[in-house]
């Protein structure tokens, strides 16, 4: 049991060779202390192949335990850690430090357009309200009982494959300038999840969902800015999905 300690020290000395010093510039906000948000810098020794989330962990665990952010899976699946990193919405757990120029301070802010509760944590309720409003579940008219498998051809499944990949991280919705200005707009994520059912051959409430998105705050507010497509960590062609919903609305009516 004694030798591993020495080995560990040597190994750590060797391992620290590739560490670099990175500045994390984090937007801090604690309403119980101050009404204003401020930038705070943290210096870290970190492997550039680590992720921004690892840097945030280092800060929270070793430097300042009050730093508040959401994360769960740490592997790009749960969608809890979307944040604005160097001015662009990304998942902290999918962003490698070496990929975002660690020579300059790395800025980390909460996503925009939603109320900041503390540090990087925002109120997601309006986002999930828009999601609920598009009825994101399978609806069938007569056979609600799951008595048998609902079969679907490979082509029919392919039609909406792209939009099944959404993890509801809100990176797209909170990158949309229309949403920043008016939070009553459904936002890209809700439209993506409506698209997932509108174009599913097994679902029978497509018309109803189209009608919901024909609303004043629906798809027609989209100005094809493409911020959502750029932001999506799952590589979903968000703007294209929105345009397909618009086209479906136009072609079903004329």
């Amino acid at each position: 049991m004694a030798t591993p300690v020495l080995d560990k020290v040597e190994a750590e000395a060797a391992a620290s060779d590739h560490l670099i010093t990175v500045t994390f510039r984090i937007r801090r906000f604690n309403p119980e202390v101050s009404a204003d948000a401020v930038w705070e810098d943290f210096q870290l020794e970190i492997d550039p192949k680590e992720r921004v989330l690892d840097g945030l962990h280092k800060i929270k665990w070793d430097i300042d335990g009050t730093l508040t952010f959401r994360r769960s899976c740490a592997h790009g699946i749960c969608g809890s850690d979307a944040m604005r990193i160097n001015g662009k919405n990304r998942l902290a757990c999918k962003t490698l430090i070496k990929d975002i120029n660690p020579a300059k301070p790395i800025t980390v802010e909460p996503i925009k357009g939603l109320t900041v509760l503390k540090d990087l944590v925002v109120d997601m309720d309006p986002f999930f309200q828009a999601y609920r409003d598009v009825m994101p579940f399978l609806i069938t008219k007569d056979t609600n009982e799951p008595t048998r498998e609902r079969l679907q051809s490979a082509e029919d499944r392919e039609r909406f494959d792209d939009t099944t990949k959404c993890i509801l991280c809100a990176a797209c919705t909170s990158s949309c300038p229309v949403f920043w200005n008016d939070g009553q707009y459904f936002g890209p994520a809700a439209i993506v999840n409506a698209h997932r059912f509108i174009f599913d051959s097994r679902d029978e409430a497509g018309e109803q969902r189209l009608e919901i998105l024909n609303d004043r705050d629906g798809v027609w507010r989209c100005r094809t800015t493409f911020n959502c497509t750029d932001a999506c960590p799952r590589g979903i062609e968000v703007t294209k999905a929105i345009q397909e919903v618009k086209r479906a609305l136009i072609t079903r009516r004329f």
Binding site: G183, D215, K246
Partner: peptide, 30 residues
């Protein structure tokens, strides 16, 4: 007595008005 927050403008809530304007927005877009 929660701490004050800066609310986002025009949030979506359960009561967000549902518009009954038919296809007006689509016509305007076209």
């Amino acid at each position: 007595n929660p701490a004050p927050l800066i609310e986002a403008p025009r949030k979506r809530t359960k009561k967000t008005p549902r518009s009954t304007r038919g296809n007006f927005e689509m016509a305007a877009w076209l």
